[in-house]
C-alpha cells in the first residue's frame, strides 16, 4: 500500500492543513477522539505529539500541555494502545512527533514496528540529526513504511535542502522562523522572503510551513509558498480550556479554513 502522506500530496497540491496536538491531552483518553474530530472537521494531516519531560524546541504552550499529558499518565506504550484501532475510524495521514529519548528507550525497532501495526505514516524527531538517521535508522523506518520528515530553518544551507529533496521524506517541514514553537505569530516580510526562496527551489518533495502559524491569515499566507502549513500551539490553546471537544475542534478548523 502506498504511504498515505505520498497519496495525499499527489492528489492535493495546496492548502494542506496539518494539525499538531500532544497525546493524552487535555484528558488522557482524548487522543483518538481528537483525531477523529479533526478528520471530520476537515484537517488533512495530523501530527500526534509524544509528550516528553524536556521539550527543548517547544515554547510554553506545548511544554505545559506535554507536562499535563505526562501527569495524566500518557506513555508511548499507552499511546500505541490508544491508537490500536485508529484505522477503523481515520483515513487521513497520521504522524508521530516527539523527541528522541522516549523513542530510543522504547526501542527504535519496536517503535517502528508498532507504528506500522497501528497505521502511522510518518515520524518527526526534531533532535535526530539527518546524519544519524541515515546511518542508524533509515533502514528500519523504510522497512516499516515510515516517512521521516526533516526540518529546515532559515539558516539551513541550500545544499542540505537539495540533498533532502533527493530522498523519500513525505514532506519537508519548513520552520517559519528561528524560534521555539508558539513564540511568534504572524508572518514578517523577512519570513516571506525566506518562503519565496524555498518556493523558488522547486523541490520535488512537498513542503509545509510550521512554527508561528496560528490563524487563517497566517495559514493562507504560508500556503502561497508551500503545499500547506502546520498549526500546533494555537490548536492546543483552542482545546485546553474545557467545553465540548468536538465543538472546539470543529470551530478551530473552520476558523483557520476561512476562504480568503
Amino acid at each position: 500500500m502506498d504511504n498515505r502522506i505520498d497519496v495525499l500530496f499527489r492528489e492535493k497540491k495546496e492548502n494542506v492543513l496539518t494539525i499538531y496536538f500532544p497525546a493524552g491531552f487535555p484528558e488522557l483518553n482524548d487522543t483518538l477522539s481528537i483525531l477523529v474530530e479533526l478528520e471530520k472537521a476537515g484537517a488533512d494531516v495530523v501530527e500526534i505529539g509524544i509528550p516528553f519531560s524536556d521539550p527543548l524546541a517547544d515554547g510554553e504552550t506545548i511544554e505545559m500541555a506535554s507536562q499535563k499529558a505526562l501527569q495524566n499518565g500518557i506513555s508511548l506504550k499507552l499511546l500505541f494502545e490508544q491508537l490500536k484501532e485508529m484505522r477503523k475510524y481515520v483515513s487521513i495521514p497520521v504522524l508521530l512527533m516527539g523527541y528522541l529519548n522516549p523513542v530510543y528507550r522504547y526501542g527504535i525497532e519496536q517503535f517502528c514496528v508498532d507504528c506500522k501495526a497501528v497505521g502511522i505514516d510518518g515520524v518527526i524527531l526534531p533532535d535526530l540529526p539527518m546524519r544519524e538517521y541515515r546511518k542508524n535508522y533509515q533502514t528500519i523506518f523504510h522497512k516499516n513504511g515510515l516517512k521521516n520528515v526533516p526540518l529546515i530553518t532559515p539558516q539551513t544551507p541550500v545544499e542540505r535542502i537539495e540533498e533532502l529533496d533527493k530522498e523519500e521524506h513525505g514532506f519537508i517541514y519548513v520552520v517559519a522562523s528561528s524560534a521555539t514553537t508558539g513564540a511568534k505569530s504572524g508572518i514578517s516580510k523577512e519570513q516571506e522572503d525566506y518562503f519565496a526562496r524555498i518556493k523558488a527551489l522547486q523541490l520535488k518533495t512537498p513542503t509545509q510551513i510550521g512554527f508561528g502559524i496560528a490563524d487563517s491569515a497566517s495559514f493562507n499566507k504560508a500556503c502561497e509558498f508551500t503545499s500547506g502549513a502546520i498549526i500546533g500551539s494555537a490548536f492546543v490553546k483552542a482545546i485546553q480550556n474545557g467545553g465540548e471537544l468536538a465543538v472546539n475542534v470543529k470551530n478551530f478548523v473552520e476558523f483557520v479554513k476561512v476562504i480568503k
Binding site: 524546541a57 528522541l100 526534531p126 540529526p129 539551513t156 520552520v175 528561528s178 521555539t180
Partner: peptide, 11 residues
C-alpha cells in the same frame, strides 16, 4: 556524545 540537536540549533 554526538550532537543530537534540532535543526534550529544546527547553524
Amino acid at each position: 556524545g554526538g550532537a543530537f540537536i534540532p535543526e534550529l540549533l544546527q547553524h
